[in-house]
Design a protein around this nucleic acid. Sequence first.
DNA 1: TGAACCTGGATGATGTGTCAACTATTCCCG
DNA 2: CGGGAATAGTTGACACATCATCCAGGTTCA
Lengths: 188, 188
Amino acid sequence: MMCQLFPYAEHVTRWLEPEQQRAWRAYVRMQGELNAHLSRQMSVDSEISMADFAVLVQLTDTPDERVRVLELARSLHWEKSRISHHVARMEKRGLVRRENCRSDGRGSFVVLTDLGRSAIEAAAPAHAETVRALVFDQLSDAEVETLREISEKVFTRLTTGECASVIARCDADDPMEVVPEESGCPEA
Amino acid sequence: MMCQLFPYAEHVTRWLEPEQQRAWRAYVRMQGELNAHLSRQMSVDSEISMADFAVLVQLTDTPDERVRVLELARSLHWEKSRISHHVARMEKRGLVRRENCRSDGRGSFVVLTDLGRSAIEAAAPAHAETVRALVFDQLSDAEVETLREISEKVFTRLTTGECASVIARCDADDPMEVVPEESGCPEA
DNA sequence: TGAACCTGGATGATGTGTCAACTATTCCCG
DNA sequence: CGGGAATAGTTGACACATCATCCAGGTTCA
């Protein structure tokens, strides 16, 4: 009745150890709230969303401030249609513009505009400050290190072996070759 | 790197230490991939989404298998309009149904249907197995403990003080209503 | 050359989340 | 009692993510 977020108790207890279950519930809850808070903070005190921010970061990280659409998809781990839709919306708002690629008639670049640059420059400090205040001010150096190790381990697991086939969608979309794989990838 | 994106960030705010930044990027990537993978796994080998699952868990955890809409919103930390929309969609698919509340003419219950019950019973084992395989099989006991501690610290920060007012949206306008941490005893 | 195939990207349908505004009931208090 | 305020929940508009499909431009190879 109170504040229990994901009381998997009945369903998960049999498969996770009690300690694991407590950790999982705490993680899920924290992660949801943190995402919500960061998104909200970003769109409240700037005019862009977290997704816009991610795209703009990729662009400002590039000397040219122009990146091919599919490379954006790869570096953000987004599907190509997602990046396409999102760039279309950002273009409509003037944050980026598209440019044709002369060396490859199919391709197109996403180019940072002045408005886009000033938008990310306006948004970044508050975002960084929020992350610092919400996360890193709460953690010791050892905890930060462990957080990184945990994240890397899980991420590696996610992008290795059978799980990778899911993510491979944007690296090479040959969906026909994806093996049926009965109950997901966990069966490694 | 990102640091040079923010020319005057140094003057306005503390950006992140290099180790913090690495940890943050690792966490963000992991968290995004993990969410995507869990969602995908769930909707591939069962006919429900993670959001459906969360709602169904709340219902099956209740003796009656019926919960008031606003209580759903509170326990899931969702906005009331989100739960309303989502329940409408689930009702359309036969997973739940609505029932009027006689003791309060404004209220309504969300009630689990047989289809809903069999859907969650079919989905839960594979989900738990996926979580175990992707996360806990990668981590030592110490890492699991640290993950829980980190999550609890950040979550506490998110639901305390000024941040709480943001989350309190669904708890009406009484910020003191926000429950700090129930039986969890973060420092245990 | 040209047919089969691959690749980069766009598009439309659909499901989902958020915000603001709205209705209807109940509560509070004079 | 009556009139406001709070509460429970819905609705519509819009932003966003995913999926399947389409298409134009390149590649391969006979």
